[in-house]
Amino acid sequence: MEPHTISVTELDTCLDGADVVFVHQCLSATGLFAAAHAKLRGKWTFGLDHGGGEHPLAHHSPEIGRLFDAFLAQSNFGASSFEDIEGRVAVIKGPVDSTYYSVNPQVRRDSSLILAVGRVLPHKGIDRIVPLIPEDARLVVAGSCYDQDYGQYLRQMPAASRLEIREGLSDAEIRTLMQEASLFIQASTHFDYRQRYYAKPELLGLAALEALCCGTPTLVSSAGSLPELSSIRGCTMFHGDGELGALIRGHFSRQPGRPDADEISRDARAKYGLEAYGHQLLTLMAEMGAWQ
């Protein structure tokens, strides 16, 4: 979607019904367009970036950030997206839909199931996990394959027989997988298997958060915002592939003292859940005068 494809009349009609406008992908051409019209109509405007691209003006002219009363970053790392732009940045971590993603005692855990969720793209680092799958375990990747070369690369890896890519799953099916999984891994990387660089591989780590809300122990890489998730009980960060291998082995050796599913879910909800997010957001808005 580009700005010239948008009917300004329809956009303005939508905006007229709002007091506060949240603009997602706020630095994209379309995001800036929506924010500009919100500002022309005197609305409070908050911007969020999910890595959906940046209009050249965003970094050419820092003043463009004045379109927003504040940027809302989902993580400390996400806040860095706004470093070069004028404007207030507030970090409110999350949110994850903790009412939808939760522990389900009716679903039995599959002790051999390792789960990864996300688009099958090189910066997701799935190739880092595949060689480390224990022989008595299997890795299910739930997500569409947007890079056929990468998909082919994964399928040719030595342990590929223990890898299954499931495309086109519904939210409910993914939630069930999260509730079944023994371990969830988010191995995103700044440098992919061809050494291509990604500045923002993760700005939050929503899939990992959803798994944590389902009470699933989770391993996250040190890329982007993922290290911040390790403050949640049951979530552990790894730096390199060696450390990832050791953590996987440790998980399957059933080391004692690990938090149970309810503890993990409760902590994720308390730190990143909808209620926690909403409370912080309203506090910020009240402080700025956008909410009474």
């Binding site: 367009f33 003006l57 003043e63 004045r66 927003f68």
Partner: peptide
């Protein structure tokens, strides 16, 4: 904010 709105819309 309105100045920034004109800046961006002007560029378009």
């Amino acid at each position: 904010g309105v100045q920034a709105a004109f800046q961006y819309l002007g560029s378009l």
